[in-house]
């Protein structure tokens, strides 16, 4: 498969899977205001997914549109990072995932908004405004929960502990990334780690939390090797398209 197609798919899959996860909260959040803000973040992610998957489909030119890519691929063809498919857990676990990922997306899209390929740059420029807000929202909650009660602190630590294993994968570079950079569409993700570390650390300090100890990274999402969680998510998300393959909705 063409590297740019895969590159766009990865971006689309990250947003789609995270948007799907966040939408599971709708109607069930700890407070009405939180319900509305999580739904906002989910909507932004689904919007980004729609743009990137449509671009992937157009670059592939095999007649697959964003919906076919979202609803008719099986788990081994999904290329999202493992972080976004992690279960919501409690609110602290959801916030931990959102915090780590939004910091990454903010740095990524800030760079991508300046790439030569206008198709990628345009989606990134629009998404950058959205994800900057997501990063602020999640950071504020990390601080509130980390520097709230004993219980919220313990839960925030546990949430970060769950998600931390999957952070390194965000910055992993492979042939697809290199080809995308050479084509004027990609970003050197490895170069984002220092900025990510300093942003994450600053929030953790404010939250009176210690940075979780380094550990062996768990990777595989970019090549279709996922956690057990993704298959269940897809079986739910893709149900109607699978059960009624000839229907239009």
């Amino acid at each position: 498969m063409d590297a740019l197609v895969t590159y766009a798919l990865r971006l689309g899959d990250d947003s789609l899977v995270l948007g799907q996860r966040l939408s599971e909260w709708c109607g069930h959040a700890p407070a009405l205001e939180i319900d509305l803000s999580l739904a906002n973040v989910a909507l932004d992610q689904i919007g980004q997914a729609t743009h990137f998957l449509a671009l992937a489909g157009a670059l592939e030119s095999k007649g697959r549109d964003a919906d076919q890519l979202a609803f008719r691929r099986d788990v081994m063809d999904f290329t999202n990072c493992l972080l976004v498919e992690q279960p919501n857990g409690d609110f602290a676990q959801t916030i931990a995932r959102q915090f780590l990922f939004a910091q990454y997306q903010t740095l990524l899209f800030a760079e991508m908004a300046r790439v030569k390929d206008e198709r990628f740059a345009a989606i990134a420029a629009k998404a950058l405004k959205e994800v900057s807000y997501h990063a602020t929202l999640a950071s504020d909650w990390v601080v509130r929960l980390g520097d709230g009660t004993e219980e919220s602190k313990a839960r925030m630590i546990a949430g970060l502990d769950w998600m931390w294993r999957f952070a390194d994968e965000l910055f992993l570079m492979d042939d697809v990334d290199v080809a995308a950079i050479n084509a004027g569409a990609g970003v050197d993700k490895a170069a984002l780690t220092a900025a990510w570390d300093s942003r994450v650390d600053a929030v953790l300090v404010e939250a009176r939390l210690e940075r979780p100890p380094a550990r062996r990274a768990i990777v595989g999402g970019r090549s279709g090797r996922h956690s057990e969680h993704l298959g269940h998510m897809l079986s739910e998300m893709q149900f109607l398209q699978r059960a009624y393959p000839d229907a239009e909705w």
Binding site: L16, D35, D67, A70, E236, L240, A247, W249
Partner: peptide, 22 residues
């Protein structure tokens, strides 16, 4: 919401349920 049949329907439904919360 998690079973909406396509991306457009999913976004519309999510926005609608969010409106109800508002």
């Amino acid at each position: 919401i998690t079973r909406a049949p396509n991306l457009r329907r999913k976004a519309i439904l999510l926005a609608k349920v969010q409106d109800e919360g508002g």
